[in-house]
Amino acid sequence: MSALTENIKLEIKKLSGNNSDFNKYVVFNDVSFIIPKNKITTLFAPMGSGKSTLLKLIMSQNNLNIKYYGNRIFYIPSEIVLIDGFTVAENIKLYVSSHCEDKINDALKIVGLDGYKNHIPINRSKGFIFRVMLAIGLIIKSDLIIIDDYFNNMRNITKIEIFNLLIELKNKMNLTFFISSSNFSNSLTISDKIIFAKGNPFEVLYDIDIELNYQNLELKLESEQFSLLKDRLTKKLSELRIRDIII
């Protein structure tokens, strides 16, 4: 790995053209951005703009314009992909080897589900299900976790707990997260970097590194710096004329 790329986890360079894979037709127009290592980066774009298609394109790893500098990527979709009536452990064992009981226990402990191995996740909250998905990502040793517009319709308190967990995983386990979102407030709360994009055709309009280092999320949200940044980016949003988003 060269010195130039050692802080980069994923790089998209001049991605253009039509894509009709993944049941949706999306036109990309000179899309370029980088996902820095050990950071939480959010791709903020309107609903239906083609965010999911781009994420799936990254996952397919067969596009020459997309370069990944890591071991394994894990993708968490916005839809629930756990099975009705299966326990947490049974669901995990469907996706990973069933002989790694210790790994499952360790991963559940890390994501805050210690003791919930025999619970049925489908009857639980969206936050609980997300933690199970995250555990699968940890078991298969992913170093980049891609989250597709998952945090909409989630209770605020759960959302903050999940965001704190992601920040903790980023710091303690050197993980990189790439989140797609159409929710401005969520993007601002969790991200170290935000990439603003629009759809039809899909193109990147602006990106910003957010350097707000606080001990925890609550302190960050209450800080004056955060309020100033929020005002600044809200103005930027109207300048960029990005519509169909959640403020």
Partner: peptide, 28 residues
């Protein structure tokens, strides 16, 4: 279909979609 796409995108196992489809159908 969502489950199968999830398995394929994450390259979890080539045999898994069939296994999941069968288990999922039976359980549901």
């Amino acid at each position: 279909n969502n489950l199968i796409e999830f398995v394929e995108l994450n390259k979890l196992s080539t045999k898994l979609p069939t296994k999941i489809k069968s288990v999922f159908t039976t359980r549901s």
